[in-house]
Amino acid sequence: MNLPELIGTALGFLLTIVVFSYLLGDNPFFRLAIHLFIGVAAGYVAIVVIYNVLLPRLFLPLIFGSWGERGILLVPLILGLLLFFKISPRTAWLGRASMATLVGIGAAVAIGGAVIGTLFSQMEAAINAFNLGNGLIMLVGTLATLAYFQFGVRKNDQQDGVVQQLSTGISAAGKFFIAIAFGVLFAGVYTAALAAFTERITSLWAFLQNFLPF
């Protein structure tokens, strides 16, 4: 192991110990490690934003592109510059047009993603999986889960007894399916966390072995 790698591995070892020290209670070292993590993550995001998005998509075509390209890119350039006025509350109104454009595009992308990526694909999968065995369980579970959120909001006193009982029954079935889904998801998260725990312990031991005689 060369010197930079040794220093890096030692730093990783130290940070792992500091983060694990949280098990004994919140302490200044743990908070310092978290602030270090936030700082590095923020710096990393800045690198990606500037060198992977803004330079290749905006600044380089503006400098080296054709006149047509430059004209097209003037709109995002101006809107982007106006967005910086959002930093100060006194000039924030200047960035409203940029925010409106961003929110409009974001809403459209969200609608497109929800309809094409989630609603259509999930409905198609539900239709394709349908049969009188497991397919029926899946259909009932999906409908009951949806109904749980619909009827679980508030009880309507004006509903008659039969409708009320039916709503309560479907809602209970939906809760049952949600409990199973969360149980499986929780097991998945727990397994992933366990794998990370094992990896950290292994890396701590591997680092210590560099200095142990056995």
Partner: peptide, 21 residues
């Protein structure tokens, strides 16, 4: 069983996103 619950949740999230959009 879990797919049924998750699909219900995903459809609910999709409908909520659609309404917000």
């Amino acid at each position: 069983w879990a797919v049924a619950g998750t699909r219900g949740l995903l459809l609910g999230i999709g409908l909520g996103t659609l309404a917000s959009g």
